[in-house]
């Protein structure tokens, strides 16, 4: 069973500040939905990424779930390893305690959720999240009726789970690498797996108590710093190109190898250029309020 946040005397160390419900991992009588990802079974087909995109119409350039890929070893003894990533639905989420409008909150069953109607797009939760699991929905989106410029994230497909279905990424996983369920229910598949297998979580020292567990996790691919230092030159260039062609709506991107001050300036120019659009949106709302 995954470790809970209890000391030897059984006293629980609560870190549930703000509007989040208390941590429920391992607490009898409560539900705690969790996901175990068996990396030994992941074949890197990306069908989970596609299923998630299809389920939510997530715009280009942002992801609720994605699969990180690494090559290990030296030719001819090489291995390719994969690591699916998504919101960790922490028991003690930093994003929730930092949200100034209570737009993000923790459901009593463990889901960390986002309320678009409350979100002001300040992106404090993105700054707070240690797992990069949140994103700002871009201004340009295919379906204009869906929200833009609010923060979005994985919901563990609560709309499906509440109907007795599995999250779309779990449902579609061809290798059966993603296992989902209530880890507080000893009869659930996920609880049995967590009891049987050695599992790791991302950044355990931060005290967030993630609810996404990795089986067969590899330090090389799980490390934040190695994600930066061990990139291929091609991946580095791809990210630079991405930043040049798909500027974020947060004005903080810096392209490696180019002048930092140039990008500081360019971000400000982009910020000013976006004001007329936002002003137009404000105008529409005021018009609607006055004239109905």
């Amino acid at each position: 069973m995954a470790e809970t946040h209890n000391d030897e005397s059984g006293k629980r160390h609560h870190r549930d500040y703000g509007i989040q419900t208390p941590g429920t991992k391992g607490v009898p009588g409560t539900k705690r939905y969790a996901m175990a990802i068996d990396l030994r079974k992941c074949i890197g087909c990306m069908s989970c990424v596609v299923a998630c995109k299809a389920e939510f119409g997530t715009p280009l350039g942002v992801w609720r779930t994605w699969v990180k890929t690494a090559d290990k070893g030296a030719y001819p003894n090489t291995t390719r390893v994969f690591m699916p990533r998504l919101c960790n639905h922490c028991d003690y989420p930093i994003c929730v305690r930092n949200c100034p409008t209570q737009a993000t909150y923790k459901h009593e069953d463990g889901f960390v959720l986002q309320r678009y109607n409350r979100c002001i797009g300040c992106r404090t939760c993105i700054v707070a999240c240690p797992y990069n699991a949140r994103h700002l929905i871009p201004l340009k989106r295919t379906d204009g009726n869906l929200p833009t410029l609010v923060v979005d994230k994985c919901t563990f497909c609560i709309h499906r789970v509440k109907k007795g279905l599995l999250p779309s990424c779990v449902q579609t996983c061809v290798g059966g690498a993603r296992i989902f369920g209530d880890m507080n229910d000893p009869d659930s598949e996920v609880a049995k797996l967590l009891a049987k297998e050695k599992v790791t979580v991302l950044k355990p020292s931060l005290g967030t108590e993630p609810a996404v567990f990795y089986i067969g996790g590899d330090f090389e691919i799980m490390s934040e710093n190695k994600s930066y230092t061990n990139r291929t030159t091609q991946l580095k260039e791809e990210f630079n190109t991405f930043k040049r062609k798909h500027p974020g709506d947060a004005f903080g991107d810096i392209v490696e190898g180019e002048s930092t001050m140039y990008w500081v300036k360019k971000n400000m120019v982009d910020f000013v250029a976006e004001i007329p659009h936002k002003a137009g949106e404000v105008g529409k709302i005021i018009k609607k309020l006055i004239f109905g």
Binding site: G73, E220, I221
Partner: peptide
């Protein structure tokens, strides 16, 4: 031990930028 190389990953934007530095 041979180190791994990351060959693909999602791209993320920095959430706060120049306007916040000026503020």
């Amino acid at each position: 031990m041979d180190e791994s190389v990351i060959i693909s990953n999602a791209f993320h934007h920095a959430p706060w930028g120049t306007p916040i530095t000026i503020y």
